[in-house]
């Protein structure tokens, strides 16, 4: 088998291997399914409860994407504002760090009081948890323009806006797309945190319900579906990244000398 084909297959092989070891350990040590169900039991539960799982997966997916979309829009705007000037950067940074340090679990009850139980707190939690890496990356891309390049353009009479449009914003793209991959997985965390605390739909809600009914295989089925959604979204954004900012990958392999 060529190394190329091997590389393409290896993620599948590793996943399969992980499930196999899990299954073997569960059977060999006769692990109580209430503690840790074997993958076979989880897949049986998936087949048995496929409709509620599909329904709730969909709710989690769309609330996550809605929160993520808000985070992208808001993150890009705030990132540009923060990256625009050193004064704003220095002024806003501590506030943002402080904000990011607050565990979002602590915010969910407030959101529930404001907006009631349902999808809106989930969307907002996903938004709150995922906008930060986007802001930081966009701002970093803008504020690390090579000073000499800026000099070249300023000496020609370029205004700050020219420099941002010609250099800042294009050069921020690799940072932005890189941060989207991180942000989308964080958005899932946000949604599920909110769903487990206060919701009437979504995978988080389903897992809490299943847990309180002692249906551990179903709880794990929810977990696996969450992981799967996260992987798919990550893969989509990794593809988008390589499509839009391929130059950033290639330029690191520059001819040199």
């Amino acid at each position: 088998m060529s190394t190329n084909a091997m590389e393409r297959l290896s993620p599948w092989l590793f996943t399969l291997g992980m499930f196999l070891i899990w299954e073997i350990v569960c059977r060999a040590f006769k692990v109580d399914p209430f503690i840790l169900p074997a993958p076979s039991q989880i897949f049986v539960a998936m087949g048995q409860y496929w409709w509620p799982l599909a329904k709730n997966s969909f709710v989690t997916l769309w609330t996550t994407l809605a929160g993520f979309a808000l985070a992208v829009a808001f993150g890009i705007v705030l990132g540009i504002v923060v990256g625009w000037s050193r004064a704003i950067y220095r002024g806003l940074y501590p506030v943002m760090i402080g904000f990011n340090s607050v565990p979002k679990v602590a915010v969910v009850p407030i959101l529930v009081i404001w907006f009631g139980i349902g999808e809106i707190p989930a969307i907002l939690t996903a938004f709150l948890i995922s906008f930060f890496p986007i802001v930081v990356n966009v701002a970093t891309g803008l504020s690390t323009i090579e000073p000499e390049l800026e000099d070249v353009l300023r000496a020609l009479g370029a205004k700050k806006l020219d420099i941002m449009l010609k250099i800042g914003i294009p050069r921020t793209q690799p940072y932005l797309f890189g941060s989207l991959k991180v942000a989308i997985t964080l958005a899932f965390v946000g949604t599920v945190v909110s769903e487990t605390i206060a919701a009437n739909a979504g995978l988080g809600f389903l897992m809490v319900q299943a847990g309180s009914n002692f249906q551990m295989p179903l709880v794990f089925a929810g977990l696996l579906l969450l992981a799967a959604e996260g992987i798919v979204m990550y893969a989509i954004f990794a593809y988008v990244e390589s499509y839009f900012v391929g130059w950033a990958f290639r330029s690191s392999m520059s001819a040199g000398g």
Binding site: E146, E148, L149, V152, P170, R171, A248, R250, S251
Partner: peptide
């Protein structure tokens, strides 16, 4: 102006 680093835009 030109500097030690060519500072070309990779995109």
């Amino acid at each position: 102006m030109a500097f030690q680093n060519p500072n070309l835009l990779p995109w």
